[in-house]
Amino acid sequence: MLPYGRQTIEDDDIAAVAEALRGDFLTTGPTVEAFERAFAEKVGARHAVACANGTAALHLAMLALEVQPGETIIAPSITFLATANCARFVGAEVVFADVDPDTGLMTPATLADALKRLEGRRLRAVLPVHLRGDAADLAGLKDLAQGAGAVLVEDAPHALGTTVKFGNSAGTIGDCAYSAMATFSFHPVKTIATGEGGMVTTNDARLAERLRRLRTHGMVRPEGGDPWWYEMPEVGFNYRLPDILCALGLSQLAKLDRFAARRRILAARYHEALAPLAPLVRPAVRPEWSDPVLHLMVALIDFAAAGQTRRQVVEALKAREVGTQVHYIPVHTQPYYRERYGEFDLPGASAWYDRCLSLPLYPGMEEGDVDRVVEALREVLGL
């Protein structure tokens, strides 16, 4: 069975974890700082703060910005639940932005529309999602966010290794050239894995210090105090990432370039193999400024024209040992948010959702696996 995504764990990864298990620290030890330093250097940020998972990273970002009840963030509707939920964790409201129907990304145009729906509430942050691994238009989004008195916080779990170029300015997702912070996840299907784990990058030393304090119950140890003394100026959380998992993260991070190259080769093979299935099937569009390391290989399929439902296609592919997934159900349609904000239409999000299907993509695949997936899809659709 080819799953839509899976981790690549090798003998040296296992050895790194075993070495950490034999060490003096299983948590809050030197491997955490080593992973943070290596990650910050890899993406080009001044600071990186490890935490329990990608959702914790988003929550910490909202806490570090001191987002308050009654304030608002804007998030795209095509994303995982956590992008919106992190605002609700701190009592803030969410305005959902539509997305481009062919990329799934928030755009300056859809952000401008969302800004019109603020209804007088103070906007604190805009959370673009680098869906699939392709980067949102950070330069354009930053200009609009700044004009509205807000900052960008990049939701970047899909985009580790992705590079961008806006005009003559080149960069890497996570370098925070356009944002206050960027958040990452190391869930097993992501580009590198720690089992569970997250990271926040920033170039702001004050934010980095708050992130570190808030991930450890809000505790501080005043200089000159007794060696056992600690104080809690504000409530934080237990969002620490143990040394054991950071050891795995360090080992995986050393392989990022290899994983990225493999994902790019497989994505190129998909684009070539899917071309004959157009216009019924085509890959999600890639923005010109983005050179992605794709986390997801999304095909946009005209199921109605194929005379089949998506469920029929998913089940037929599963019978052929091809796993798939859907990324994502528009968050504004979830029962909680419908009850809170009512029902409304975001046509780009609906068009994306109606057609999207994530096909297998992970470094352990061979080019022949891509051909097998596309051949199965061709058979199922009767092309």
Rank of each mutant, 00 (worst) to 15 (best):
H187A: 14
E196H: 08
F166A: 13
G171E: 02
K190R: 13
T202H: 00
K190Q: 15
S179N: 04
E196W: 05
V189Q: 14
H158C: 11
G195A: 12
F184I: 07
T172P: 01
T201K: 02
A193I: 01
T202C: 06
T163S: 09
T191R: 03
D175E: 00
G167E: 13
N168Y: 11
A177D: 02
D175N: 03
F166L: 12
A170P: 11
T172Y: 10
H158V: 03
F166K: 10
V164N: 09
N168K: 15
G174T: 03
K190V: 01
S169T: 13
N168S: 14
I192H: 07
F186C: 08
N168E: 15
Y178E: 04
M181V: 01
H158E: 14
G174H: 03
G197F: 05
T163N: 04
T172G: 03
Y178H: 10
G171R: 08
S185I: 00
G198N: 05
P188E: 09
I173P: 03
T183D: 06
A177I: 01
M181E: 05
T162V: 14
H187T: 08
D175L: 07
M199N: 04
E196L: 08
T163R: 05
T191F: 04
G174I: 00
L160R: 08
A193V: 08
F166Y: 15
P188N: 11
T162L: 10
H158S: 15
V164T: 14
M181C: 07
T163P: 04
F166P: 06
T202I: 05
G167L: 11
S169Y: 14
T202V: 06
N168H: 14
T191G: 02
L160N: 02
T202D: 11
T172A: 14
K165A: 14
F184K: 07
S185R: 03
G198W: 00
G197W: 00
G197H: 01
A159H: 12
E196N: 09
I192M: 10
A170G: 10
A170Q: 13
N168I: 07
T201C: 02
V164E: 07
S179V: 06
T191C: 04
F186N: 07
S179I: 00
I192Y: 04
T202W: 02
A159R: 10
G174N: 07
A170R: 12
F166I: 11
S179R: 05
Y178C: 05
A177L: 09
G167F: 13
G198Y: 02
G171Y: 08
S169D: 15
T183V: 00
I173F: 03
A180D: 06
V164Y: 15
I173V: 15
V189I: 12
V189S: 12
K165G: 09
I173D: 03
T201I: 00
A182Q: 03
G161K: 00
L160W: 09
S169F: 15
A159W: 12
G197D: 03
G161Y: 02
A182S: 06
G161I: 04
S169H: 15
Y178I: 06
G167Q: 13
M199Q: 00
G167D: 13
T194Q: 09
T191E: 01
H187F: 15
G171W: 04
D175K: 00
A159N: 15
K190Y: 10
A193M: 11
T201H: 01
G195I: 08
T183F: 02
V164F: 15
T172K: 14
